[in-house]
């Protein structure tokens, strides 16, 4: 058997959702003598049992990574349901990236169509929130915009001032208050079910620590605009349109101050 065929066969057996024995029953790529014709078995362990060691290692190594990446989601559904969730997930989204931390990237998408999300409709959003926390934690570095840099901007130049969000910034649209569920998990208070409530979350990083907070009206649209690079004037317009109150100038000034304090804007402005 060629090396490529041998490796493909072992891959199928190791990742068979029902285990190696079940995988062998379904396997069509075996030689006439079966697995023992390829792999040495002995009195201590049959060839099938030896492959099963790798099958166990594959599943439990990835389960451990996903347990860590989605700790609050795990706390909500419990060990058994999470184990079964990961079994289905790995069959639907087998890891392709070299970095194992990427193995759980699609779990939020998988959860959206999963029965667990029917019983707890906030679950996929909670997982997406946890994934965003991980992404922000290891997002690209870069200098954040500081207040001193804005001091030199002439009054007439503010509207055309180019701004962009820092690479370690995510904005999530949510239908459920999943940050409260996560906070209850973090505090060890026992996870509380998320209440329904449309809102947006800002996730950002400062001094290597990840922070999150609920956004005010118009703030999410403004920051989304700034993700591709925009002008301060355009950001003001979307905030003004969303709020429509007389105090919009004061609101924008306050929001700009909070973004700078949290390192949300990049010092590398787009051209």
């Amino acid at each position: 058997m060629k090396l490529a065929e041998l490796q493909a066969l072992l891959y199928r057996l190791i990742t068979a959702p029902g285990g190696v024995a079940e995988g062998l029953v379904a396997e069509r790529g075996l030689p006439p003598g079966g697995l023992e014709e390829l792999i040495v078995g002995d009195a201590r362990m049959a060839a099938r049992e030896r492959v099963a060691i790798y099958a166990d290692a594959y599943f439990y190594r990835l389960l451990e990574v996903l347990r860590e990446d989605y700790a609050a989601t795990l706390a909500v559904v419990g060990e058994t349901a999470f184990h079964n969730l990961v079994t289905g997930y790995l069959a639907a989204y087998p890891p392709t990236a070299r970095v194992i931390q990427e193995a759980g990237r699609a779990l939020p998408d998988y959860l959206r169509r999963h029965p667990l999300n029917e019983a707890r409709p906030y679950l996929a959003e909670l997982a997406a929130f946890e994934r965003a926390l991980s992404e922000v934690f290891q997002a690209a570095d870069g200098p954040a915009l500081e207040a001193a840099a804005l001091g030199a901007v002439a009054p007439h130049a503010w509207g055309a001032l180019r701004l962009r969000t820092h690479p370690a910034v995510r904005v999530l649209r949510c239908e459920w208050k999943v940050a409260e569920t996560y906070r209850s998990y973090e505090r060890g208070e026992g996870v509380v079910a998320a209440a329904r409530g449309r809102h947006e979350l800002l996730i950002s990083r400062k001094d290597d620590r990840v922070f999150y907070r609920e956004l005010e009206a118009g703030e999410g649209d403004a920051l989304r605009l700034a993700m591709g690079g925009t002008t301060f004037g355009a950001m003001c317009e979307v905030i003004a349109a969303a709020r429509g109150d007389a105090e919009v100038a004061a609101v924008i000034s306050r929001l700009l101050g909070s973004w700078i304090a949290a390192g949300v804007l990049s010092a590398d402005a787009p051209a």
Binding site: Q7, Y58, P95
Partner: peptide, 19 residues
Amino acid sequence: GAGGRNLHDLLPLPFTAAT
């Protein structure tokens, strides 16, 4: 891994001249 998929494990090779 095989076929563009990763097992995140270290698997042995056949000890042959071709390998």
